Simulated scan of single mutants.
Amino acid sequence: MLIDYHTHHVRCGHASGELEEYVKKGIELGLVQLGLSDHMPLLHVDPATYLPGMAMPMEELPNYVQEAFRLQQQYKGQIDIRVGLEGDYIEGYEREIESIIRAYPWDYVIGSVHFLGEWDISDYRQLDGWNGRDPYDVYVKYYEAVGKAVRTGLYDYIGHIDVIKRFGYKPEQSVVHLENEALDAVHSAGMAIELNASGLRMPVGEMFPSRRMLEYCCELGIPLTIGSDAHQPERLTQYLDQAVVLLKQVGFTELATFKQRQRTMVRF
């Protein structure tokens, strides 16, 4: 059961490739299901004055949705396309986020934390945001935001749940309790998370989440899906073979899939 639920395309401003290129690449790779999941438009910063290429412009959102569902029908029988959104969680903007989510018939919505205030902790151009900050305090704020995202009830699963480690900034203190509290919240909410393989090409050199967190997920019974977080068509399914091996080693036998906001588990 080869699936990839986390992809981005040219509309988001920091990826390349049209949606149809991803679809054709998915067919070539033998994907059974392909999730299209581009970034929600920015809500809390002015795109005109912020760093360029952070997310698709708001006026492009309906075009993205229309094209994605058109491709879903056009390639029906060749590949099962699921239409999704990576919906940033921004504290204080829950109502605006909900409005976007409720406006379209998504198959799934990924809840991801990229921003702490106006600082995008996942952007390599903003590494100076770590300057003068205690890494442990940053981790605390990050995982608090993850917990708040979970409790909104707006999302189907949490994306790259420990992406805060992306650039290798880690506190000297243990953060196991912060990670476990976030996963406990996911479990209490009946949600899933993803195993995002893109961390293998990042400075941290490790998938999101870590093996330790995956083992805790398995212990709790938290469902998982997988995604490459591809930003170029040629990176579709990148490292997912390693992701599947890791999941099997940890003890997972099923993957979460989503259609019309309903989760179905499939064996792999």
Rank of each mutant, 00 (worst) to 15 (best):
P47G: 11
G117P: 06
T7W: 01
G132T: 04
I222T: 10
Y216C: 12
V10D: 05
T257F: 06
H14E: 10
V23M: 05
Q33Y: 04
A182T: 07
H39S: 09
L255Q: 05
F115T: 05
C12A: 06
K259N: 07
V23E: 03
E96K: 14
P203D: 12
H231S: 10
G205Y: 07
V245P: 00
Q66H: 12
H177N: 14
V146C: 07
I110K: 10
L34C: 08
Q238A: 14
M265Q: 10
R133V: 06
N63Y: 02
L240K: 00
V245M: 09
S188D: 14
R261S: 07
V245C: 02
V176A: 13
V176Q: 12
H39T: 01
E118N: 13
C218P: 00
D137H: 06
I100G: 00
R82N: 02
Q66T: 13
V150G: 01
M40Q: 15
L240Y: 10
I222C: 09
S122H: 03
S16A: 13
K170T: 12
F167S: 08
L42Y: 02
H8Q: 12
E59A: 15
S188C: 01
Y155L: 08
R151N: 14
M213G: 05
E194V: 07
A256G: 12
R201F: 06
G199F: 10
L116K: 06
T257N: 07
L183N: 08
C218Q: 15
H177D: 15
E118Y: 03
E60N: 11
Q249S: 13
G190D: 01
G227S: 08
D184M: 09
V83P: 00
L51T: 09
K141T: 08
F268V: 01
Y157P: 00
E219H: 13
V32L: 07
E144K: 15
K165H: 11
I101R: 08
L224G: 03
E91D: 10
Y93N: 12
V83N: 00
E59I: 11
V250F: 10
A256S: 14
Q232G: 00
P57C: 12
F258V: 06
A243S: 15
T7I: 08
F208T: 10
M191N: 01
M265W: 00
I100H: 02
L255S: 04
I193L: 13
C218A: 11
V65Y: 06
G26K: 01
K25T: 14
L2A: 02
S188A: 15
Y142W: 10
V113D: 02
G87E: 04
P57M: 11
T237L: 08
M54N: 04
E172H: 13
R267L: 03
L116W: 03
G13A: 11
I121T: 05
T257S: 12
D241I: 03
S122E: 11
D241M: 02
Q238Y: 11
L224T: 10
A192E: 04
V150A: 03
V186I: 14
L2M: 13
G227Q: 09
Q72T: 06
K248P: 01
G111V: 05
P171I: 04
